[in-house]
């Protein structure tokens, strides 16, 4: 659009700045600037009373206070890398479970008559409209020690002679709530993709003698890969940074990256290290997006 830009009249140019200026300035101030500050903060020393060491201090020694200390610290103790790896696997597991649960639902909606599709999609979005914390809290009730599910599981375990287990405050509770909260993010892009498939392709496959499984595996599934990739990104990324679900439903050992970051900012108040962890999380997210885009584009050629 750059050539069109060159021959804009003065009035049109003014319009352009009037329209794009306010959101541009706002986001420059409250999104770009804070992000830059965070990068800078990750190279600073922590302040005496938490936060950062003052930038404009009278003491010139602190003025030059840029350091790689927090990054060195991150790699000096394997526990931090371990938490990153654990978060990655939790995000991966959540994504896979969401995919397995979302696929049949999305497929059914896509193959339903046009009139009922809107309602079926709405029914997927509706629980998603309830507050995030309420959806997590629901699992606190469902997995509580007096709840039917716990009684059942422990009844079965008791019958075979195994000790009782706690469903609440466990990795299991974290995973199930992660799936519950993010499921609609997987259903919607999948449905959007599946809905566009031409049913005559399946007819052709059937005429050529493909059974239901082969029709799915060789026609529907490859065509739905773009939907799978966008859904997976929408689930994977938020789960990677999630702190509230492990915080509420997890035990002491279920700390993920998000909890670590929260702890640095609000608990120990080591902001430089918190910033470093945030930068690491950003890099992890970018890496995943890049990988997904690459895999998506190579697979897309065969589909």
């Amino acid at each position: 659009m750059s050539d069109e830009h060159a021959n804009l009249s003065p009035a049109a140019r003014l319009t352009k700045w009037l329209v794009s200026g306010p959101p541009f300035v706002f986001l420059l101030l409250f999104f770009v600037a804070p992000s830059i500050i965070m990068v800078v903060a990750s190279f600073r020393y922590p302040g005496e009373f938490g936060g950062l060491a003052p930038v404009a201090a009278a003491d010139p020694a602190t003025l030059q206070g840029l350091t790689l200390e927090t990054y060195r610290f991150f790699f000096s103790d394997f526990i931090y890398t371990e938490i990153f790896i654990k978060s990655f696997f939790v995000a991966l597991a959540t994504t896979v479970i969401c995919l397995v649960m979302a696929y049949p639902l999305a497929l059914l909606i896509a193959r339903s008559p046009k009139k009922s599709r809107d309602l079926m999609v709405l029914l997927v979005i509706l629980p998603f409209a309830s507050n995030f914390l309420i959806r997590v809290y629901a699992w606190m009730i469902l997995l509580g020690p007096q709840a039917a599910l716990s009684q059942l599981v422990n009844g079965v375990l008791g019958a075979v002679g195994a000790g009782p287990v706690h469903l609440l405050f466990s990795p299991f509770a974290v995973l199930i709530a992660m799936v519950y909260v993010h499921l609609p993010f997987m259903v919607l892009p999948l449905y959007t993709n599946l809905e566009k498939h031409d049913p005559s392709l399946l007819d052709a496959a059937q005429d050529l003698g493909a059974n239901a499984w082969r029709r799915f595996w060789h026609v529907t599934f490859p065509l739905s890969l773009p939907g799978i990739f966008s859904g997976s990104t929408l689930v994977f990324i938020p789960v990677l940074g999630m702190f509230a679900i492990p915080d509420i439903l997890g035990g002491t050992g279920d700390m993920l990256i998000g909890n670590l970051i929260k702890e640095q900012f609000l608990g120990t108040r080591d902001w430089p290290f918190g910033s470093t962890l945030s930068i690491m999380l950003t890099l992890a997210v970018l890496l995943c997006v890049w990988l997904a885009a690459r895999v998506g584009s190579t697979r897309g050629r065969y589909a």
Binding site: P34, I37, A41, I237, P238, L281, T282
Partner: peptide, 16 residues
């Protein structure tokens, strides 16, 4: 991006 990133960077920005 994960929400927590926007949260902490704004916290940093507002205070610092």
């Amino acid at each position: 991006m994960p929400e927590i990133l926007l949260g902490v960077s704004l916290l940093l920005f507002f205070i610092q």
